[in-house]
Structures are given as structure tokens and as C-alpha cells.
Amino acid sequence: MLKDEVRRIEEETLQNLKAVTSLEELQELKVKVLGKKGTFTALLRQMGKLSAEERPVFGQIVNEARDRLEKAWAEQAACLEEAALLKQLESERLDITLPGYSFPRGHQHPLTRVIEEIETIFLGMGFQIVEGPEIETDYYNFEALNLPKDHPAREMQDSFYITEEILLRTQTSPVQIRTMEKLCPQLPVKIIAPGKVYRNDDDATHSPMFHQVEGLVVDRGICMSDLKGTLLNFSRQMFGPAREIRLRPSFFPFTEPSAEVDVSCMLCGGEGCRICKNSGWIEILGSGMVHPRVLEMGGYDPREVSGFAFGMGVERIAMLKYGIDDMRLLFENDMRFLQQF
């Protein structure tokens, strides 16, 4: 009976399908059964032998069987495809712990990094960044800053001299005078001046060349509370929002009153530790109200305007920020040190 033959082929094929392990085998089997010369196709050809009444019935049986086979095929194909994909994924697994492609990248020196950071903070507060010569006249470095020749306070700074009248600047403060001379009578004057300075000194906490950032604000009605507010703002941006500052009376020839500025220790938060010598405070800069004579030297009338000035050591700030305890490391330029930044 042809009908039985259909069932036999279907069952045999379904059986064979289960054993198929690859898409290629699956295709082969399909050709073998449903192809032009396939066993199933051969059965259909025998339909001619059937009577007119039998044909539609048989046709239906064949079609149904073929549909079931096609469906089984599709299922098996999907199954095999999924397995193949899984296999591909498995075979393409990478060691994701290996480092990625190495793009070259250099390192910025910690001092220029700190200077840029300081600049950014003051730019945000509306300060202009100005610079002045590193080789200065005695006039700008000392005299115009209320340090006449033979003033004992000159002793505080051991200078490198080029001639009797020309020296390596010992501080960035001469930029105060140069700026006022240039801008006068314009108001307000609001500048910071970063740069190299030089003193004849060399040990773990002093370097013969180091960096300072000077600040100067001159306007009508500038008072000490403005100095305090500006430096508090700076300290919080530089060292963290929880920082407090305190001012201590001090002496600089070009400011009066003068103040040393301490910031609450960024390491212990004021509890006391090795870095702050258990005081909870760290001295970070010198400051004060611009001395009336210095305003005069800059061309301004101290009865009309007032100002404040400050100066900070960049090395000291970098040392605090990065926990460096020997200043000489900053100028040795050992790659093992520099490449940590």
C-alpha cells in the first residue's frame, strides 16, 4: 500500500533527522528524501497508478506528511544553527584580562600640573594671568616693594646676583609693580603671576630654583575680609570643600597688615598628624594688604584704592598634594618618579 509506504518513509526520515549533527548532513538528507530524485518525490510519481477517487485522499496524506517533514526539518535546522553559533562563540573567546592596545601617553610634570590647577581656579574667579621677567632689576625685586637697599629684611632672601643692579628674582612679587605700572589708572587690577624664582639655598625643603604664584587685587574698597574670602575659596577648590583657613599675623615688607595663611590639614582634617606636625593646620601661603608705599610705587593713590596680595610656593603645594617629602625629587626628573603623574 502506497499509504503505508508514505508513513514508513516519514517515520524513517524523522528517525534519520534526529541523528543529523550538521547543517550539511541535514541538507543531504533533505535532497535524499525531498529532492528531485528523493524517495518521497518518487512516491508522488507513483500517484498515477491510483484511481481518480484515491488520488485526492492520497494527495492529502502526502501533503500532510511533507508538511510535518518540512517542519521537523526547520526545527532541526534551527537547533543545529544555534549549536553552530554557540560553538563559534565558544571558539572565539578572548582573554579579556590581557591589556588593550597601548597608545603612547606622556606625563605632565607635577609642578606644571599644579600651576595649571591654580590658574584654572583663579581664572574662574576672574583673575588675569600675567608674567614677568625672571631676571630682574634690584628696583623691581626689592626697592619698589618697600625694601630699600640695606633693609634688614633683604636678609630673609639670599639672592643670586648678575650685576650689582640685576639679579634673579627672589619672588614673583615684582610682577605686582610691573602690572600696576602697566595698568594704572585702570581698576580693578586682578591678576595672578606664576613663575620661577631663585634663592641661594639647597636642601630637602629648599631648592635654588622654585616656583611661586603671586596674586594681586587692587580696587576701591578692597578689605582684609576680601583677602580672606578669596583665599578660602581658593583653598577649598584646591584642597577640598571641607577646608577652613586661618590667618596669622606675619611680616612682609610689601604688605601691611601681613598674614600667614594656614589651611586645615587635608590629611587628618584638623585632628593632627605627622604632616601638620599635630597642629591640624598647614601653612600654605603668605599674604596681606598691599603696603601704601607699594601702591604709590605702582602709580595708585593709597587714599583712593586699596588692595591685597598673596604668594604661594608651588613646590610646597605639590608636595602636600602628592605626599612628596623631599623637594629635590621635583627637579631630579627621575622617570620612575615623573611617570607616576
Partner: peptide
């Protein structure tokens, strides 16, 4: 001494 910021012209 309190803390304030300089008043006057914006820069």
C-alpha cells in the same frame, strides 16, 4: 575678620 569676596566691576 569675616570672609567676603571683592565687590566692584566683574572681570
Amino acid at each position: 575678620i569675616p570672609t567676603t569676596l571683592p565687590r566692584g566691576a566683574q572681570t
